[in-house]
Amino acid sequence: MSESTEVAATAQTGAVVSGASASLWSDAWRELYRRVTFWVAVVILLFMGLLATVPSLFTSLGPNGRCDVRQAKLRPASWNPFGGGPHPFGTDTHGCDYWAQMVHGTRAPIIVGFLVTGIALALAIGLGSLSGYYGRLLDTVLSRITDIFFGLPLLLGAVVILTAFPSHGVLTESFVLGLLWWPTMTRLMRGQVLSIRDADYVQAARMLGARDTRIMVRHILPNAVAPVFVYAMLNVGVVIGYEATLDYLGVGLQYPTVSWGLQLSQAQEIFTDYPYLLIYPAVFLTATVLSFLLLGDAVRDALDPKLR
């Protein structure tokens, strides 16, 4: 077995080919390599990732650490954050160092962004493949369920369900958003599978006696998943924006957790007098969301030769 079949299978799907050959992914990589926006996005995201994983590199304080109410709402000494002073970014309404809070506020939104997208992507790939491949009754039922969830405005659904939940941790929020997020991706996946289902190489595989699962996983999935993946990448940024909105409305994460959304929520009443409380976290948040969008855009352009 093994070697010759492996080579044959690889040649059929064209998925694992690497090196100098002109496969879809190596072509895409060559295209990406030249894009400035791609590298800008990657650098920003690496920085945010570092903030999220090792916050101690950037601040010696813990989350909500050494807050002093007598030091509340200290404006930053100057708009140049490298100007020195004990609180280069000022302090928040509880007298916590704003820079430290922003550093610790990175982790929650990024985890939520990836978890929600992961849950939605898993559901979309599973349900979309099944409904696109088998068609008939299963497709009808799954598509109607998708329609129902699609008809529910996302923000409304999230607010109602999150209010019902007794706990408001990162996991709860991700779970609820993930449950509401899958319909768009599922439709995309279903459409992809539908367009590939009757391709010649799929017919060939079926005639060679491949089982349904093998056809789905080895032949259809690698060729159908690229646009869904790109959408998911763009989506991480959108989820992070939504997470902040839910925090702002007061139904997302709650106090002992630190997140950009909560900081913005705190700033809302007094931002006319203390604009820095709104501006700093908003800049961090926007930069992160923007990087995910740019990354997704760049990858999509690279993968889709039609748009070149």
Partner: peptide, 8 residues
Amino acid sequence: VIAIPVFV
């Protein structure tokens, strides 16, 4: 514009 949260 897409990247800035609507409330901000």
